[in-house]
Design a protein around this nucleic acid. Structure first.
Lengths: 188, 188
DNA sequence: CACTATATATATCGCATTGATACTATTGGA
DNA sequence: TCCAATAGTATCAATGCGATATATATAGTG
C-alpha cells in the first residue's frame, strides 16, 4: 500500500492535517502496521488534491501557522474502496533484533543476553501501552487491530521468556568451541 | 539496518553470490525479518568491495554466466560487530491486511469475512512452511528465529480464529446503521 | 513437439520513500 | 533562564523497491 492510499484510509476515519496523519502512523493503532514520513505525506496529499480525491481548507490559528485540514471527497472514498478490493500483499516485517540474534556469532555472548532482556522489557512496555489504548474510545475495527497487536506481542514476550536460556547456552558453547580451536588449530 | 550491513551479516554465515543473498531474504529464516531487492543488493556489494569489507572471486561456470562469490574480510567482520553493538531499532511491521481491517467501513461487510478467512489460511500455510524449515539442519540462532516466527504466527492465527465473528458482527451492525440513516436522513 | 514456466545469474533505471533538517512559535519543566 | 517538547508546513539527498533486460537450461504441459 503506497502512502497515497494510506492517507485516503486515514482520512476515511475523519478529517486530518498532515501533522496529525504523521502522529497517527507514529502512535496509536495505525503504528502497528504502517509508517510514513513527512517527506512522503505532504507530497501525497498534494497529489491527492490534484486528482480531486481530497479537499483542503486552511484554518487560521491564533499565533500559529495556518492549519491545512484535509477531507476525503466522494471520489476519494471510491478510490479507497477500489484499492481495498484487491487482495492485500503479505506482511513485511523488519527486525534488527532478530537480525542481531541470527548474526550472533559476530557479537559477544553476554551481548546476546542483554539484547534479549532489553527486548523483553520493550515488549512489556508495548503491551502496557496498547492496553492503555483500549481504555479510550475506539471503533470495533480499531479495537480488533489493537487486540491483535497485544496478542502477537504477548506471544513474542512469552517465547523470549521461555527460550532466552537456550540461545545463550548455545552461544556460550559456540564461543567455547572457538577458543578451543584457537588453542589447538590443528584440531580443525 | 541498511542493506550493506545486512549483506555483511549474511556473508558472516558463509560465502554467497548476490543471487543467493536475494534468495535468502526471500525464503528461509531471514525472510522473517528482512527484505532486499536486486536493485539494492548489487550496489551494496559493490560499495562493500570498494571499502574492502568483502572480497569477490569470479567462478566460471559451464554454459552459465560467471558466478561472483563474495566473502567477508576481517575488516568486514569488524564492521559487522561494530554495527551490532548498537542497540537495535524497534521493529517495523507493514500489513495491508490490518490496514484493510481498520479501513473496513469503506469495504463491503462480506469482504471482511473473506479477508479474515484467507488470512487464516495464509497463517496456517506459513506455519507449516516454517515447521518444515525446522526439519533441516540449522544453527541454534536460526532455530531460535524460526521458532520465534512460529510462535507469533500461531498467536495471530489463534486470535483471528477466536475473534473473526466479533468484527463481522460489528461491521454488519455498522452497515445496518448506515442503511437506517439513508432511509431516515432527518434522524441524524 | 512446441510452448511456457521456473531456475540460475548479473545488472540497471525510474520512482517512492526515509531520515534529517529548516523554519516559526508556544508551552512546560528543570 | 534555558532546554525540551508540542504544533505546524515543507524540502532534499540518499536509500531502496519493483520492474525489467539479458542469457541459457531444464522441466512440465497441452
Amino acid at each position: 500500500m503506497d502512502i497515497k492510499t494510506l492517507c485516503l484510509g486515514i482520512l476515511s476515519l475523519g478529517d486530518a492535517t498532515g501533522y496529525e496523519i504523521k502522529k497517527m502512523v507514529a502512535e496509536g493503532s495505525l503504528s502497528l502496521f504502517s509508517e510514513a514520513s513527512y517527506g512522503s505525506i505532504y507530497p501525497a496529499l498534494g497529489k491527492l488534491m490534484e486528482q480531486g480525491l481530497v479537499t483542503c481548507r486552511a484554518m487560521a490559528q491564533d499565533k500559529r501557522p495556518d492549519k491545512k485540514v484535509y477531507s476525503l471527497t466522494e471520489a476519494g472514498r471510491g478510490e479507497l474502496t477500489r484499492s481495498l478490493r484487491k487482495d492485500p500483499d503479505p506482511d513485511k516485517n523488519r527486525s534488527e533484533f532478530l537480525a542481531a540474534i541470527l548474526f550472533c556469532e559476530s557479537v559477544a555472548p553476554e551481548r546476546v543476553t542483554t539484547l534479549i532482556q532489553d527486548r523483553i522489557v520493550e515488549h512489556e512496555e508495548k503491551i502496557v501501552a496498547l492496553e492503555g489504548l483500549l481504555a479510550g474510545e475506539m471503533t470495533p475495527a480499531s479495537r480488533f487491530v489493537v487486540e491483535y497487536g497485544i496478542a502477537t506481542q504477548k506471544a513474542a514476550l512469552k517465547f523470549l521468556q521461555s527460550h532466552q536460556g537456550s540461545l545463550v547456552g548455545a552461544a556460550a558453547k559456540s564461543a567455547a568451541n572457538e577458543l578451543k580451536e584457537v588453542d589447538t588449530p590443528a584440531a580443525k
